[in-house]
């Protein structure tokens, strides 16, 4: 049903629409294509060959990045931290969202407002205090410190998003579950969460991309090379060797491949999950 409503009778795109789509695509991937081209050029060719197709393509940059640099290690770190953050965020935000969507209780409005307000705090404002706090508590330069900070920053938006999603799920099912004697927690985990899957998937992707793209927190909270995340690792790599554009662009492409794969796999689900829930208040 949904599919026929969405696309069935909308007017198909005309030539102008195609032109606009192509223009937008070029704008979107232009810088990436140029990086792709550069990554196959030798150091000399980078400075002499300004054509989009390399005249003498080489894999040299890629072998250096993959086998002689720390880039694979940075990738691993980012996957671990982003994955753990997504898990922690989903657990905390789901519980909070469910509580505020399904129960009336004193302080509900105030708590929601409080959580919303914290998303207005600029990251740069709390970076210095967070650094001191992390050193004090002993989580500076650890995965744990990063995960806790990222989770706290993602919980407000994800909580609001999931709350909207829960509100679109009819409560009749839960009432039936309760009449059958299931506890509140069981009703939530076994009846509501499966229905909320699209919303959870969308929230997971958004949180994952956020962590993957962040630079400031990762640069402030970690100092040892072994625990460095990919966004910071790339930047250091750049200053360490001067600007070696061939290697740098190869490193950039290596690091965005996992994200592009994730994106292509999840993109449809993401839009579907968001349209099912996120537009509700």
């Amino acid at each position: 049903m949904a599919e026929s409503i969405r696309t069935g009778r909308r007017k198909p795109a005309g030539p102008l629409a195609y032109a606009a789509l192509v223009a937008a695509s070029l704008f979107a991937v232009g810088p990436l294509l140029w990086a792709l081209s550069t990554s196959f050029k030798s150091p000399d060719a980078v400075l002499t060959d300004t054509s989009w197709i390399p005249s003498a393509p080489t894999l040299e940059n890629y072998t250096i990045v993959l086998f002689e640099s720390q880039v694979p290690r940075y990738l691993f770190n980012s996957v671990v931290v982003a994955g753990a953050t997504v898990l922690a965020t989903l657990v905390l935000a789901t519980l909070g969202a469910y509580a505020t969507a399904r129960f009336r209780f004193r302080g509900r409005g105030a708590s929601l407002f409080f959580i919303l307000m914290t998303s207005m705090i600029p990251g740069i404002a709390i970076l210095v205090p967070l650094y001191f706090l992390a050193v004090e508590v002993g989580v500076y330069d650890s995965y744990l410190g990063l995960i806790v900070v990222y989770t706290a920053w993602q919980v407000p938006t994800v909580l609001w998003m999931l709350r909207g999603f829960f509100q679109t799920i009819p409560t009749s099912l839960e009432e039936a579950g309760r009449i059958d004697g299931a506890s509140d927690l069981r009703v939530m985990v076994q009846l509501v969460l499966p229905l909320a899957k699209p919303g959870l998937a969308a929230a997971a992707v958004i949180a994952f991309v956020y962590v993957w793209n962040d630079y400031l927190i990762a640069a402030t909270m970690v100092s040892s090379d072994d625990k460095r995340l990919v966004s910071v690792g790339l930047y250091n790599y750049l200053s360490q060797y001067g600007i070696e554009w061939g290697q740098l662009t190869a490193a950039v492409l290596v690091t965005i491949v996992p994200m592009v794969v994730l994106f292509v796999l999840m993109e449809k689900r993401l839009v579907a999950g968001l349209s099912a829930g996120a537009t509700k208040g």
């Binding site: 695509s25 991937v29 962040d214 630079y215 966004s231 790339l234 740098l248 965005i256």
Partner: peptide, 16 residues
């Protein structure tokens, strides 16, 4: 293609 810049970090975008 059009949504791809979303997964590019700010650092990488600046360099590219």
């Amino acid at each position: 293609l059009i949504l791809m810049p979303w997964v590019i970090s700010q650092t990488v975008a600046a360099l590219l």
